[in-house]
Nucleic acid binder design. Structure first.
Length: 227
DNA sequence: ATCCCGAGGG
DNA sequence: CCCTCTGGAT
C-alpha cells in the first residue's frame, strides 16, 4: 500500500504557508480544528504584525485574538501563542528547538504539532498522527490502536525512519482528498485493491472524485483504471 | 448536523 | 478518561 501511496502522491507536502520555523509553528497551532485554507488566509496579516518570539510574548491579548479569531478556539490559541513566545525566549533564545522533547514542552505544542515541525522545518523524521492519519491507518488495518501515541509507535515499527515524514504527508494528503471521514471516495482511491474498507463510500469514479480536480484527478483516474 | 492536519485541564 | 474551547464550510 505504501508504494501505491508514493506513486499516487509524489509531491505531497505541507499545505500551510510559512517561511520560517516560527511561522510554521504558529500556523500549525492555528490549524487545530480549522482548515489549512482558512489558516493561510489568516496568517499573512498575522506574520506581518508578529515576526519574532518576542513579538508574541509581548503581544496585546485582545489584538492578537482579533488576528486569529477566524481560525476558531481563538482564546486558547492566543494563550498558547503568548506563552509560546515567552517560553521560546526563556529557554531557546527566541528560536524554535529541533528536538521532540523540547518541542512538546512548549505551551500549545503536543506530539502532533512537534512532529510536523521536525519533519517540515528541520527535515528530521516524525510521524504526524492527526485525525486523518489515525482514521486511515485503522481503516487499512495497520493498527487498531485509538491512542495517537500508540498509533505513532505502531506505525513507526512498520517503516524505516527515513520514510516517516513523507509517509505522514501522503497519508494526510490522501485523507483530505479521498479517504474522508464520512464518505470516503472509494471509486477514486488508488489503494482500493488492498483496502479492507473498500466500499464504505461511493465506488463510482465520477461520484467519488467530485472534490479532486485537474492534473491530480487525471493522475488518479489513470491509477484507478489500471488497478 | 458534522467536520476541519489538537491541546490542556479537571 | 473525560470535557472544553471556537468559527466557518458543507
Amino acid at each position: 500500500m505504501k508504494r501505491c501511496l508514493d506513486e499516487a502522491y509524489p509531491n505531497a507536502e505541507c499545505e500551510l504557508d510559512f517561511s520560517t520555523p516560527l511561522e510554521l509553528l504558529v500556523a500549525v497551532i492555528l490549524s487545530a480544528q480549522c482548515t489549512d485554507v482558512r489558516v493561510n488566509r489568516t496568517t499573512p496579516a498575522l506574520f506581518a504584525r508578529y515576526r519574532t518570539a518576542a513579538d508574541y510574548a509581548g503581544a496585546d491579548r485582545t489584538e492578537l485574538e482579533e488576528y486569529i479569531r477566524p481560525t476558531g478556539f481563538y482564546r486558547n490559541k492566543a494563550t498558547s501563542l503568548l506563552k509560546l513566545g515567552a517560553a521560546l525566549l526563556e529557554r531557546h533564545d527566541g528560536e524554535v528547538p529541533d528536538t521532540l522533547d523540547d518541542l512538546v514542552k512548549l505551551p500549545g505544542v503536543g506530539r502532533k504539532t512537534a512532529n510536523v515541525i521536525l519533519g517540515e522545518a528541520f527535515g528530521l523524521p516524525g510521524i504526524t498522527v492527526d485525525t486523518h492519519f489515525g482514521r486511515l491507518v485503522r481503516r487499512w488495518g495497520w493498527t487498531a490502536e485509538q491512542d495517537p501515541v500508540k498509533v505513532e509507535f505502531a506505525v513507526g515499527e512498520l517503516f524505516p525512519r527515513k520514510d516517516w515524514t513523507m509517509l505522514s504527508q501522503r497519508v494526510i494528503w490522501h485523507g483530505r482528498r479521498i479517504c474522508h471521514a464520512r464518505k470516503p471516495a472509494c471509486g477514486a482511491c488508488p489503494l482500493a485493491r488492498d483496502c479492507p474498507a473498500f466500499g464504505e463510500g461511493p465506488t463510482d469514479f465520477d461520484e467519488a472524485a467530485e472534490l479532486v480536480k485537474g492534473d491530480e484527478r487525471d493522475h488518479l483516474l489513470a491509477m484507478v483504471s489500471q488497478r
